[in-house]
């Protein structure tokens, strides 16, 4: 990886040039390509049709969280205190952490069964980051947080919609 400032050949992946200290972080990230593959790296998730967050408080009961998911027809709620994300509770947790454990939904606060400090992304991040997190770590829902404020979340469904609108709808033969 050549330093653009002094032409020193640095080890790939270093953050600063070993000779002149120029910032090199991010320079060896893959270059955006043309077509949809380029969009995966250059689009912003904030520009995608992301899902509106459904927020609950950590003190809300599991029953209330499930009722909120039903009303909004969503698969997860974000748990927040004073607008700050503190956890995530989804339909998988309903099965594995509530029903299978025999938890009393009417008296247990959602904070006891949520995933605390969920992995989050920024609306400035590209969709490639969301896909990476979904396939590498198995995350289903990724909260989008900008300067501490919850702006939405992205799910596999949102990525499929992005693929559909960006690839399939664009290339479908006119009928």
């Amino acid at each position: 990886m050549l330093c653009p400032n002094c032409d020193t050949d640095n080890i790939p992946g270093v953050d600063v040039c070993e000779a002149c200290g120029t910032e090199l972080a991010g320079m060896d990230l893959p270059e955006a390509r043309s077509g949809f593959r380029g969009k995966l790296l250059t689009a912003r998730m904030g520009d995608l049709p992301v899902s509106e967050p459904v927020l609950v408080s950590p003190d809300d009961t599991v029953r209330e969280a499930i009722e909120r998911m039903r009303e909004a027809q969503v698969g997860c709620v974000l748990v927040a205190t004073d607008g700050k994300l503190v956890g995530l509770f989804n339909e998988r947790h309903v099965l594995t952490r509530v029903l299978r454990k025999g938890i009393d939904v009417a008296s247990t606060p959602v904070s006891e069964v949520m995933s605390p400090k969920p992995f989050e992304l920024s609306p400035e991040d590209p969709p490639a980051f969301a896909i990476h997190s979904m396939v590498a770590y198995g995350f289903r829902h990724l909260p989008l947080v900008s300067q501490g404020k919850i702006v939405g979340y992205i799910s596999v469904r949102n990525i499929l919609a992005f693929l559909h609108d960006g690839v399939i709808a664009d290339t479908a033969p006119a009928s």
Partner: peptide, 13 residues
Amino acid sequence: HYPETLLNLPPRL
């Protein structure tokens, strides 16, 4: 199919 675009990434830029 596109590991250099989607898998070989740091979790955060």
